[in-house]
């Protein structure tokens, strides 16, 4: 878990007493961020942009944040959101989210200029080994962390292929972001309204069928569990290394509540929030 020190510019006035002020310079990754924008991209999908240079400076692709979406006690728990993009020069973080319940509905009410209480950056992000060709496979809102990852990979001069899947065209997220990075994602939809008709895993299978040197490649996947299981199966069968970013039902995001556990390959529980959210797919039990 990254720690933000005072040099990174902690937010002022977050506590009232002298002891707290002293504490805040040494401890904590609880931050106030400023909302820059929060707009609907397509039906039910939103893009939230927040500003805090300490946060953007500490964040890594694949990490996540815990957002406090209400002032009061209802909804009570923070909502985990993966970081989709990190803009170091502007000190901004982009979050893509889909409205699925009370918490995310509440999140849509944040307007530009408002302040938001965030914990983070949390968890282990993507492990980026040098000189591998990367295949990024995202399903639905699971595409979010792969945008920042693509950016990072391109900075390192790597070769990047992107595949995006969605139920329908409306669920294909992140296309403009990838295009702005100079990438041309392959697209699939369940209903065929955009790209090929079928699952994104079919795109993956098609692409890797021509690969002769699996050691040169690394697959990164994020999306629904059923999709990730298939991505893992395809990667394993082709002997290609694979990292997956998992979703978890989190209470705390700190490894304390033990809610977001998944079984590892030895059937021992690991936490998505602290041991993940990014895992080598071979380390898990599918």
């Amino acid at each position: 878990m990254a720690r933000i020190d005072d040099k990174a510019g902690r937010v002022k006035g977050r506590s009232t007493t002298a002891r707290f002020r002293q504490l805040s310079t040494t401890y904590g990754t609880k931050l106030k961020v400023k909302v820059i924008s929060n707009e609907e991209l397509s039906l039910g999908y939103y893009r939230l942009l927040v500003s805090n240079s300490a946060l953007s400076g500490a964040a890594k692709a694949g990490q996540f944040l815990m957002l406090k979406v209400s002032q009061g006690d209802n909804p009570l728990l923070r909502r985990p959101m993966s970081i989709s993009r990190i803009d170091l020069s502007r000190g901004e973080i982009e979050i893509l989210y889909r409205v699925v319940g009370r918490g995310t509905k509440k999140l849509t009410e944040f307007a530009a200029g408002m302040s938001m209480d965030i914990l983070g950056p949390l968890g282990k992000g993507f492990d980026i080994p040098p000189s591998k060709k990367s295949i990024l496979v995202g399903g639905g809102i699971g595409i979010a962390p792969l945008i920042g990852l693509a950016e990072e990979l391109l900075k390192g001069g790597g070769e990047v292929v992107v595949m995006i899947g969605g139920a329908a065209g409306n669920d294909v997220i992140g296309l403009p972001q990838f295009e702005s990075l100079g990438l041309s994602p392959q697209i699939s939809t369940d209903d065929g309204s955009l790209g090929i008709k079928g699952f994104v895993t079919s795109l993956l299978e098609g692409y890797i069928s021509s690969i002769t040197n699996p050691n040169d490649y690394l697959i990164y996947g994020c999306g629904p569990n059923v999709m990730l299981r298939e991505v893992h199966r395809i990667a394993s069968a082709a002997s290609i290394e694979c990292q997956v970013s998992l979703e978890g039902r989190m209470g705390c995001g700190l490894g304390a509540c033990l809610s977001c556990v998944v079984p590892d390959k030895d059937n021992k529980y690991v936490t998505v929030c602290k041991d993940g959210p990014v895992f080598d797919s071979r380390s898990l039990s599918w």
């Binding site: 006690d73 209802n74 909804p75 009570l76 728990l77 009370r102 918490g103 039902r249 209470g251 304390a256 509540c257 033990l258 809610s259 977001c260 556990v261 998944v262 021992k268 529980y269």
Partner: peptide, 30 residues
């Protein structure tokens, strides 16, 4: 966190659910 003589795996997931101004948990003493 509650300790037992032997380690415990706890319950299957989902283990928590949010309720109005509260939450239900069934971690199972992992």
């Amino acid at each position: 966190k509650g300790l037992s003589v032997k380690p415990r795996q706890g319950n299957p997931t989902p283990r928590i659910v949010e309720t109005p101004s509260g939450m239900l948990n069934a971690i199972g003493l992992q």
